[in-house]
Amino acid sequence: MIIVKLIEWARKNMFFVKALSYTILVLLVVTDLFVPREHPHFIGDFIPGFWAVFGFTSCAMIIVVSKWLGKKFLFRPENYYEDENSEETNGYV
């Protein structure tokens, strides 16, 4: 199966995959210097690599803020909603 073989190969050559990925990222920002701005909407559209920074900070912010909210307020054990009275209602299902 070609998909499995491809994944196996990528997992064995992790260094190559990583190097390739980083090269693509750098190339993306470099080529952004030459892309014409047709309909700029706001200041960010003029800065080369703005959306790269935006993407990375968005991702980091979402992870950090959400995890902080979770740890501080929202996380509960999985059986949190299984209340102590649930035994009384057996007989269903």
């Binding site: 959306w51 935006f54 993407g55 990375f56 929202l74 509960r76």
Partner: peptide, 25 residues
């Protein structure tokens, strides 16, 4: 740019995303 740099962020911060058997209120 947005997508691939999000991907970069994901793999750099992957430790923080390790699944835990918890629920969010």
């Amino acid at each position: 740019q947005i997508l691939l740099f999000t991907m970069l962020g994901f793999f750099l911060l992957i430790k923080k995303l390790t699944p835990e058997p918890l629920i969010g209120l």
